[in-house]
Design a binder for these strands. Structure first.
Lengths: 111, 111
DNA sequence: CAAGCGTATCGTAGATCGACGATATACAAT
DNA sequence: ATTGTATATCGTCGATCTACGATACGCTTG
């Protein structure tokens, strides 16, 4: 997602430009917003928020997508930290990571 | 971005599932978050927020990207409505669309 | 009109996304 | 041990993203 390939063009030629914290901040926010940048993932997050927790199978039933596709979206949500999943016997129980959600909200609100 | 291809799997088999407003809501939010789903676009938005307005050339100078690439990112931001650009003689002056930003913040806050 | 500047668009190439079916894995129950 | 259920991963395919240079467009100035 982030290439960060070294460019020929100079950057930071003056103090006002591109302070490194800003770059990191931007990457942070971009990562979180990217997690929500697909309707299916937004819907999964909403579903989890409405239930405090949810079996994977229930999510699949709610979505007009194949099980493998839902699993992929869940993987992305886990990678970004917005969602946590814990194994419960043969099933997996997913829930929102409230800290990550709070971080997203904070970053957006401070825009 | 959204394919919405008809699936073989049934949806909305019960009342609780996938109410259409929710789907539209999810697509709305996904579209807005997708606009911010790249660090370069986050930085452009931050830059514009810090200045009330900005010439395109200034943006290009701040970013370690080619002019054409920045122009593409600006096009995406314009498409989603987060940013507006108006021609000012030979230049283009970009600014944040406050209404769209407010909508994004509201949607995220109401998650 | 010509030249120059600022911006947008085109064309292209490589990487990633998003979807699926098929298959592997992990656990529970028989 | 075998079977069945729930979930994750693999492999693949087409579409889209992201980057660039080259070029086209629009406006201003000489």
């Amino acid at each position: 997602m982030v290439r960060a390939k070294a460019q020929t063009q100079k950057c930071c030629t003056t103090n006002e430009k591109l302070s490194l914290p800003d770059v990191a901040w931007a990457e942070d926010l971009a990562k979180l917003t990217w997690a929500l940048a697909h309707p299916a993932r937004v819907r999964i997050v909403r579903l989890l928020l409405s239930r405090t927790s949810c079996m994977c199978g229930e999510i699949v039933e709610e979505m007009p997508l194949a099980q493998s596709t839902v699993s992929q979206h869940l993987k992305i949500l886990k990678q970004t930290g917005l969602v946590q999943g814990e194994v419960d016997g043969p099933r997996v129980c997913y829930c929102i990571n409230k800290a990550a959600m709070a971080k997203l909200k904070k970053l957006i609100a401070s825009l």
